[in-house]
């Protein structure tokens, strides 16, 4: 079953910390979003494997945009 990891706030992608195929555990940091000159980690909502990464460093994202799909 796929789980979408969504942007909790608008900003720029500062860093993507995982690759497709990586296994992650709940609460692992997946992506860092920079907003108002502050780095905000986005955490895995559940255990899983990274199926797809929809953003890259420097991308501008809006709140609720899908960043990563876990399965």
């Amino acid at each position: 079953m796929a789980t979408n990891v969504e942007a909790p706030l608008a900003g720029n992608i500062w860093e993507v910390l995982v690759k497709v195929g990586d296994s992650v555990e709940e609460d692992d940091e997946l992506v860092i979003i920079e907003a108002l000159k502050m780095e905000n980690p986005v955490y895995a909502p559940a255990d899983g494997t990274v199926k797809e990464i929809k953003v890259a460093k420097g991308d501008v994202v809006e709140e609720d945009d899908i960043l990563i799909i876990l399965e």
């Binding site: 909790p8 706030l9 609460d27 907003a35 108002l36 905000n40 980690p41 955490y43 709140e63």
Partner: peptide, 11 residues
Amino acid sequence: DKKNYLLMFAM
């Protein structure tokens, strides 16, 4: 709560 994002609300 590390998953609580208050930044934009505080703006």
